[in-house]
Design a protein around this nucleic acid. Structure first.
Lengths: 232, 232
DNA sequence: AGTATAATTATTGTCGACAATACTGGAAAG
DNA sequence: CTTTCCAGTATTGTCGACAATAATTATACT
């Protein structure tokens, strides 16, 4: 339950040894959840006071926030939380489609049998959760992320893992939380996840790749519809 | 001549307004060219003295070097220049294949006619250079990068542009320079570039995508061969 | 009154010093 | 002689203050 929660919020366990790490995690959460509004300016002195640290570790944290596209910095002018748009979300999903397709193919090649079995257990577990708590979107959301994270980690490609988990997924979560991107697809997602996992289990990288692309593509097309609605 | 040089070293013009920017560019070059050896430790006080700046902007620069995978930092322990390996290069090219394929498809959709014409001129120009200075690998190298950069920029997807140009390509260049990845393919590359550009000009995104993937895949297979040779 | 310019204020970028942590060498114990 | 522990050294993380740049307000001029 809360294990799922924590795991999803930080897929790769980083012990947060430095104070910049701690503050980073807090600001990251605040930005993703919309506590610090999208598009709002970030004041270094203000945040430094708020978290009881100096500006040095804060700036370190801001640098990493920029890295995962949560804020934008302009030299000598300051940092702003990114603005969300259907266009931006679409551009994000275009990349996800390619990279997660690749990740899935590599996962089919490189995942250990134990990892696959654990992922299978996780899906069963999520399914029961979903049955019991029908309509509660948080578990579905967390479950979806958890599945994707594990597949990505299964690729064993460190660049790919870094790009997806550390650079893109915080923004994906920000979009989901703030634009309510948990549409009618959630029920279908489980079946698609199962199919993908089966392909991985069969070591059929090509099929796993295709299914993952289709899985993400379906979400992307939802976004395109909303974008079209907005433009007219 | 030197215009090509500069353009390739920094595809997106960033005016380097702050001292961290200047130092970043210098260290980036030094690492890519191997002036600071791969795998060597980075001493903050030493580099700070060397460039006549304080440690604050230096650390800012180091953070960005980590972002483009040129150095690795361990909390409380320090930073090291990355080590190069055929395995790492392969993982890099797996990602390039997907992302640049996508970029190429998007470029076919979004590039302005003027941009396509300019790119055509660039290819012609490079071809004549190649004929005159046969065997001089620098122009070929620069020309190749220049082509890829322009296609990526043509995608008009800011996340994609950032990931490829700012996060991956410095490392790609580092591999090319230090492992001499300018094999017998250089002569073929021009023809492949021309074919890709033709597809873009015809607004045939699907074909452009395929050709770009094949273009990069060919390089990747060269690496796989070297990796296999090394392992036996 | 509106606009352009100048002074003021606030914010960011940079610096030097201190605290906390990790590395190094040597002494003591097995 | 090897291993473990400890002290000393060096490096990284953090802090508060200063300098440089940008934003804001006030002022003067058309």
């Amino acid at each position: 339950m809360s294990t799922i929660h924590m795991e999803v919020l930080s897929p790769i366990a980083k012990p947060a040894v430095t104070s910049a790490d701690r503050v980073l995690a807090q600001i990251q959460r605040a930005v993703v959840e919309g506590e610090i509004a999208a598009g709002s300016k970030i004041s270094e002195p203000e945040l430094a006071r708020k978290f009881n640290i100096s500006r040095a570790p804060l700036r370190e944290a801001l640098a990493r926030l920029e890295r995962c596209h949560l804020i934008e910095r302009i030299p000598n002018a300051g940092a702003r939380v990114v603005r969300l748009s259907y266009e931006g979300l679409l551009q994000l999903y275009q990349i996800r489609e390619e990279l997660e397709g690749l990740a899935c193919r590599l996962a089919a090649e490189h995942m250990a049998i134990e990892e696959i079995e654990q992922l299978q257990e996780l899906l069963d577990q999520h399914l029961s959760h979903q049955r019991v708590r029908e309509g509660e979107s948080y578990y579905q959301e967390a479950g979806d992320l958890d599945f994707h994270y594990r597949v990505i980690l299964g690729s064993k490609n460190p660049y790919l893992i870094n790009m997806l988990c550390d650079e893109l997924y915080y923004l994906v979560r920000m979009y989901r939380v703030q634009m309510g991107m948990n549409g009618p697809r959630v029920s279908r997602a489980f079946d698609e996840h199962k199919a993908i996992l089966t392909a991985i289990g069969n070591r059929d990288g090509e099929l796993a790749d295709l299914l993952m692309r289709r899985h993400i593509s379906a979400s992307r097309k939802n976004i395109e519809i909303k974008l079209a609605q907005q433009e007219k």
